[in-house]
Design a protein around this nucleic acid. Sequence first.
DNA 1: GCAAAAGTGTTACAGTTACACCCATGG
DNA 2: CCATGGGTGTAACTGTAACACTTTTGC
Lengths: 222, 222
Amino acid sequence: MQTPSQISSVNHPKFQIEVDVVVFTLRENRLQVLLCCLQMNDSWRLPGLPLQADSTLEETAAHCITQYTGLHEAYLEQLYTYYDSCEQIASVVYFALVPADSLLNAKDESASKWFPVDDLPALAPNHKEILTYALRRLRYKLEYSAVGFELLPDDFTLSELQFTYELILGEKLDKRNFRRRILQAGVIESTPHRRTGEGRPAQLYRYRPDAVAEVKARRLFP
Amino acid sequence: MQTPSQISSVNHPKFQIEVDVVVFTLRENRLQVLLCCLQMNDSWRLPGLPLQADSTLEETAAHCITQYTGLHEAYLEQLYTYYDSCEQIASVVYFALVPADSLLNAKDESASKWFPVDDLPALAPNHKEILTYALRRLRYKLEYSAVGFELLPDDFTLSELQFTYELILGEKLDKRNFRRRILQAGVIESTPHRRTGEGRPAQLYRYRPDAVAEVKARRLFP
DNA sequence: GCAAAAGTGTTACAGTTACACCCATGG
DNA sequence: CCATGGGTGTAACTGTAACACTTTTGC
């Protein structure tokens, strides 16, 4: 047991703090996650950076994403903080989503690689667990907020949006119900453009930046 | 911009890490939160302890609760991690619930005090914001999980349970709908006892420890 | 016997799901 | 003209919300 005197005592050990990021994207019709190769062995880990004294946690996470993907903007959210008492390192894990079409100019492509979430390599201890948790949070979040758009380019068709949802949730959705509901929700608006290709051209939509991104919760329990 | 070389460089500053806890309970028919007096001035803060190298984050939070409330068990959940680049202290905040009847033997009563969440004193910077977030999370969590029982003694009547929900959510609930749903959910079971007092005696119920504590999410969006 | 709190069902309404065909374009 | 993906409405069903009176006890 500790005693109250510890609160203001000088017993204040110091720790390294690392900011790790679980970056998700859509590539090759699969949900993929960014991993770094761990110093020459065949084990992989989440990309991360040590916290610097004058940065914020979120800035550090953003720097990390920029470094590995070349992107300067991403949806970012704090996930969880772990502390490893063996290594005496705390790890603040963020969760990030980057759009499907934006993976062009990573500054250090050799150091990192995308992996489908259902086909992961051997991971550093804890990182498998962290990733599983991040994936659960993504699926869960998709069900009550408009976070799915963060994985799409600015303009998209309703079919692309539905496909994104199906990919993440891992189940087929009904086309008519999906369209009716997403339009009723009022979070997207049509653009003047269409996408041509095979078959009938599709109306392009964009996410309304002024949209309320979360549905108001209905009571689920009890 | 940082460079990839920082990942494996020796540029690893160290930080103090503090574990703070937002402890909620029911007292005097109000939702209350535990606060500590900040060194002789009239400002208050969340109770906290510095992380020790060989403890886990959760252990530290649990120690903190024991110290200020005398309780050895509480519902505990990580809330968020803040980093203050001025003071260079990271603060991992936990969220805790303790039952209404268990506030007996705090070891250091003079150092801390309960405040109703709608009648708070002046707080240390950030702590007001943290508390608001914790309260939001409590209300939100109540809607999809059985977390409300953590604020009640082992045995309780349905009216007490409903009153707890009403207190936290800040709205009246329909008695018949509440009872039907909580019983259908299968998370409580009746005990052989009754509570007597004014009016008709009430059946006592208890939370089923084997109950599934979260409802399976229904799709809310889109 | 009366005050006080416990306990109990039904009906109307709203939201959700399931489902199949026509449309516009490119080759 | 046909293959391909885009786009559209309705009916059954399921879950939710609203609502008032009877029961049991202590005083």
